[in-house]
């Protein structure tokens, strides 16, 4: 099992920007303990959702040839809470990408469903900045397995809606 913290991409401009949504549900068990009687989406998992949105964007930019690893959370500032029933919208932008690493900036907004006829309002939830490392270009010269083990085939499903290739290339090496 892989922890996937985004449900769907709604926008994907290769090498530039991506948007993904995540619906928070009370059937997610972790919310029962975080916190008992007051379920709140953990900030760490919101960061993970942004890391997946931005990570896939970065990985696609290199045709999925590099293993993209979250290396640093440069900034994560939250100005609110997200609770079951809310929808998170992750917007990730690539600030820089080179052979060694990538820098991404992101914003998270949250909207709550309203009764019919009422307008759902979106509010800002977090600003997150991340640095990804290209694993095979690490400074220590360490070697890793050749197959793509970071973005495995489950992520293909996410890209199917927004990319003409459906992220087909992701699984190529894994399936060999």
């Amino acid at each position: 099992m892989r922890w996937i913290w985004i449900d769907r991409f709604v926008k994907f401009e290769p090498g530039k920007t991506a948007q993904a949504v995540k619906n928070i549900s009370l059937s997610e068990e972790h919310l029962h303990d975080h916190f008992p009687g007051y379920p709140v989406m953990p900030a760490a998992l919101i960061i993970e959702g942004m890391a997946q949105t931005a990570g896939i964007l970065v990985c696609e930019a290199n045709d999925f040839k590099e293993k993209v690893i979250l290396a640093k959370i440069t900034k994560a500032v939250f100005d609110g809470l997200a609770v079951p029933g809310d929808t998170l919208l992750f917007t990730a932008n690539i600030e820089q990408i080179n052979e060694q690493f990538a820098v991404a900036s992101g914003e998270v907004s949250v909207s709550s469903p309203r009764s019919e006829g009422e307008k759902s309002q979106s509010r800002h939830l977090a600003t997150i900045e991340l640095i990804f490392s290209h694993l095979d270009q690490n400074m220590a010269g360490k070697k890793f397995p050749e197959r793509q083990f970071v973005l495995t085939d489950i992520f293909q499903i996410l890209l199917r809606d927004v990319l003409p290739t459906g992220g087909k290339r992701i699984g190529d090496k894994t399936n060999e």
């Binding site: 290396a71 440069t74 060694q100 690493f101 640095i131 490392s133 400074m139």
Partner: peptide, 13 residues
Amino acid sequence: ESIDFLDVVFRLE
């Protein structure tokens, strides 16, 4: 740490 060196380079640029 090592990753910070990359961050420093990015910010200097």
